[in-house]
Design a protein around this nucleic acid. Structure first.
Lengths: 209, 209
DNA sequence: GCGGGGAGTAGACAGCGTCTACGGCTCGCT
DNA sequence: AGCGAGCCGTAGACGCTGTCTACTCCCCGC
């Protein structure tokens, strides 16, 4: 049994991940994934009763990937929580921009809430990292930590969404993507003490795996 | 020519709007819309060359509806810009929660960026209202108005998204939906001067049309 | 050596979006 | 008044999709 024909299950997920990264969400049909995995269109059914189940597994991989990227980034960066939050945010936005199809798939609500897999819970570790950092930078007088973390996450997510389809530059005229992020962080966490010489996040310039 | 069989074009859009409001995004197939409009599956093609074109027209209706709701709300509310912004935000979130299928349809990026209709531009008037209010409440030291408006809109949109699929309560434990909104407004616009006795927005409790 | 069961195949089915050939109806022109 | 043209909607075909089911094959344990 060579490396290539391992678990068909894993091969299907891998083919799906590759497909959604390369061609976008609309390309991830059950039959196309089966084709790329070199099996008949009925084969996936043995492991994923439904198309949605397969998509959920693919999206799970996306969450794992994003979480790993975030953790890698945080490891390479000054441990100051505010700096870490900035790095986390940049990683999140870079991921959304670089892997739009996967990002869309990950947050499809029909995947998040269906099946026994509970895809939504897969996103919790990632959110926990953010919540932990927020707790550290929270100042007295701010909103309760969970609310603050939720609001910040929502803001991040909204930026990712809105600027993914190009609405923000069109509506705001701001071509500087980073300005929005800085404004968001300043708004929720208070003005940055000073701007560390942090240059661009390179998490998504390396290969996907 | 009776009232009922006016422009087939308008009837198709109306049937689509009704369908997406009632059954959600996945129900809005070309053939089902045609069925509800009482015509054959080929008929829509005369007015909408492509399924996406029809969906865009439906989403346009959604933007018009939301914009009208916002304007109605603003008319009924104290003209203080901060109060108006709060009302706008509540209307936006209520709309997203009450008409989830339509909201999803409106922000499908494949609709926003395709076709000659330029659906994205349909959202500009709505954003302009927000931008105008933001300009009025902006204080010296805040981010430039376009950036501030963009960040606030992104935050609103993110809240709508995240809590539509129930992730926020699960992740934050905050069951109070309004806390998140207040925190967001306070973060971007500074703490509210005092809390006006504004009760719940009723924009979505009346009939859709 | 042989039976049984898991794994993948292959075909059917309904539904989808798109395309095309076709009827019928209503106009305006001669 | 009669006729040709053009618009509007119908109807069927095509290839694609996800799902379901009958079947084959091969490996493993008895």
């Amino acid at each position: 049994m060579s490396e290539g024909d391992a678990n068909l299950r894993a091969r299907l997920v891998a083919a799906g991940v590759d497909l959604v990264l390369r061609e976008g969400q609309s390309a991830v049909s059950l039959r196309e994934i089966a084709r790329r995995a070199g099996v008949s269109h009925g084969a996936p059914r043995r492991y994923f009763p439904t198309h949605v189940d397969l998509l959920s597994a693919i999206a799970r991989e996306g969450f794992a990937d994003l979480t790993a990227r975030v953790q890698n980034t945080l490891r390479d960066v000054d441990p100051d929580p505010r700096t870490q939050l900035t790095a986390l945010a940049r990683t999140y936005l870079n991921f959304a921009a670089a892997h739009r199809g996967m990002f869309e798939l990950m947050f499809r609500h029909d995947l998040l809430n269906s099946g026994r897999l509970r895809l939504r819970e897969t996103s919790l570790p990632l959110f926990a990292v953010l919540a932990d950092l927020v707790t550290q930078v929270r100042q007295p007088g701010d909103a309760p930590a969970p609310v603050l973390a939720g609001a910040l996450w929502a803001n991040l997510h909204g930026i990712a969404q809105l600027w993914a389809w190009g609405s923000l530059p069109l509506a705001t005229g701001a071509t500087d993507d980073d300005a929005l992020l800085r404004a968001t962080l300043d708004a929720h966490l208070g003005p940055a003490p000073h701007r560390p010489p942090e240059d661009t996040c390179h998490c998504c310039t390396t290969s996907a795996n």
